[in-house]
Simulated scan of single mutants.
Amino acid sequence: MLEAKLAEAGTLKKLLDAIKELVTDANFECNEEGINLQAMDNSHVALVAVNLEAVGFKRYRCDRPMPLGVNLTSLTKVLKCAKDDDICTLKAADEADVLNLVYEAKNSDRIAEYDMKLMDIDSDTLGIPDTEYDARVTMPSAEFTRIVRDLSQLGESVRIEVSKEGVRFASEGESANGSVLLRQTEEVAKVGKIKAESKDDDEEGADDDEDDDEKAKEKKPKVKKERDEDVEMDEDDDVEEVNKPGEDGEEEQDPEEDEDDDDEEGGKKRKKKSGPSKPSKKPRTSKASSKSKGKGKEDDEPAGVTIEMNQHVSLTFSLKYLVNFSKSASLCPKVQLMMSNDVPLLVAYDFGQGHIRYYLAPKIGDD
């Protein structure tokens, strides 16, 4: 028996929208590890491989390996009946000829149920060898979509060339020619240098911080040691002092006991009057700013263009297929292009649920 529960039906809808024009009928191979699909187009030029990992499902159960022969056009029509945020459950009994789909709305009590007939499809699973590619380009998927769609207006083929200059997409048509060059993003290229320099700065900065701490202590002789300890202990618990007055009042001085008994407004006034409360704010703001800066760098990295090249690569491909591949951009913000001379192009989209990979044979000569 198979029972696979997806958090959002939109993931499955986006997958089918990307492959339904390449493949008409295909087997969803279900096993303990997840659901896989592998199929070639009718002209045997492109191959698509989809993997939905069992870990990505809210609930997944597959008692034994079983193929689900599906007409992708029919499945797309059934999935259109579901909203993108509906919880989608796929069910199939052992040796069943029907696939059951249940859609549960998150914001209401609506539950829709559909049955779709399965097919017996004879297909051989191809073994995809592990290939060491000479060039790997990581770029925003939206940029890749735009490039192939623009160039498809000019001609039927595109030459993808990876060199020290960058990655170039060039198309020649009867009435016009066009090319787009993407250079490696400087911020991405400098990430390694920045990280290496930051380590050295941290080591040097540690010694400087110790000197600064000693100077700070010398500049503030009026502050008692007891108050320094209170600042460190209460650095992250200012809210608790306002909400629970009087808990630490016995350990503090008499004037501050009276202020702890005040309301929230009194607590705010106490912070303005007391001298040691100002330094307590600085480390919190500095920590927050440093964390936000770190997150910003991580978020900016996928948006850039990264090029890894062992040798110069230049191949020509059909734009019609690349435009179909680019429809998977809604699944992942970045795409990887892996190339080697005389080897099919690999276009890979990795998302939280799994991955989808396309393999496209290059054009040779005038074909």
Rank of each mutant, 00 (worst) to 15 (best):
M1R: 11
A7S: 14
A9D: 01
L15E: 08
I35S: 09
I35M: 11
N36G: 09
L52M: 10
L68H: 08
V70E: 04
L72C: 07
A82D: 02
A96P: 00
E104D: 10
A112I: 12
A112V: 14
A112F: 00
D115R: 12
S123A: 10
S123N: 03
G127A: 14
V137H: 01
A142K: 06
E143S: 13
L151P: 00
E156A: 13
V158D: 01
V167D: 00
G173P: 01
G178V: 04
K195T: 08
D201A: 15
G205R: 05
D213W: 01
K222T: 02
D228S: 06
D238T: 10
N243S: 11
G246A: 09
G246C: 08
E251M: 04
E256S: 09
E257L: 08
K271Y: 06
K272P: 00
K272E: 15
G275W: 09
K282P: 04
T285R: 14
K287D: 13
K293Y: 08
P302D: 10
M309S: 09
N310L: 15
K320N: 07
Y321L: 07
V323T: 11
K334N: 05
V343I: 15
D350Y: 03
G354R: 03
P362R: 07
K363H: 03
G365I: 03
